[in-house]
Design a protein around this nucleic acid. Sequence first.
DNA 1: TAGCTGGTTCGACATGTGTCAACATAGACG
DNA 2: CGTCTATGTTGACACATGTCGAACCAGCTA
Lengths: 124, 124
Amino acid sequence: MSNAEVLPLLGPAADQGVTPCCPPLTERPMTAEEAETAARMFKALGDPVRLRLFSAVASHEGGEACVCDISDVGVSQPTVSHHLKKLKEAGLLTSERRGTWVYYRVEPSVLAAMGRLLVPSAAA
Amino acid sequence: MSNAEVLPLLGPAADQGVTPCCPPLTERPMTAEEAETAARMFKALGDPVRLRLFSAVASHEGGEACVCDISDVGVSQPTVSHHLKKLKEAGLLTSERRGTWVYYRVEPSVLAAMGRLLVPSAAA
DNA sequence: TAGCTGGTTCGACATGTGTCAACATAGACG
DNA sequence: CGTCTATGTTGACACATGTCGAACCAGCTA
């Protein structure tokens, strides 16, 4: 799966990192479509193992980490791979193979978009 | 169920609304316990119906809303009640009966704690 | 070519989750 | 008291999800 196929949570101007998918939760009731889109992000982080994996990547130096650096979360290696794939499908991570190892990297604009959903004062 | 039974996502100083359950996701890898706690929040918002209900309450004037005001989300009434209970168990909402109607209210400090998880720059 | 290591995919299973119809409960109002 | 309306609870069901072992693929090294 290429990384370009999955980036569901940003608006058309996602490249500039300024257009969240939806207004803050407290601004107005979300539409069904907005909720569908945003729920996919929250769902991706709604598992303890995925949250640890994501945090491990996000806090790693350079914002990227090899699978081998973060796979010590108490589940089998196929399960780690499964969860990383889920995070990738949610648009939260991208992956790249460099030689023997595969590196995962956070998608900063998506993270910021999620933050804006929750913290109205952080909006422009 | 009383409201006091469920407030899983804030630290000991939750009353002051200043102690999130966990550091920002990008600061350091989360521990298993932190991830367990935080994942419960994200999971609660990881369903489109719950997200719409939560957004409806959060955006309602006064930060609270009667069930009758927000139950138009395309699912049956028992399902609405079920989802509101989930949001309550996650500590995101509290409820109070006033006469005939039941009012739900957002827990602002929990919302802010979630925001801090995602937006490191918003931390103190 | 063969073998080794890191990572993903497959197949199967148990558990969790969203949903509804039916029933139960809490107040209001007569 | 009885009845009506507004919510919550129960039970059942279909479906999604987390997990693992086994098999598979990609690149390195000999």
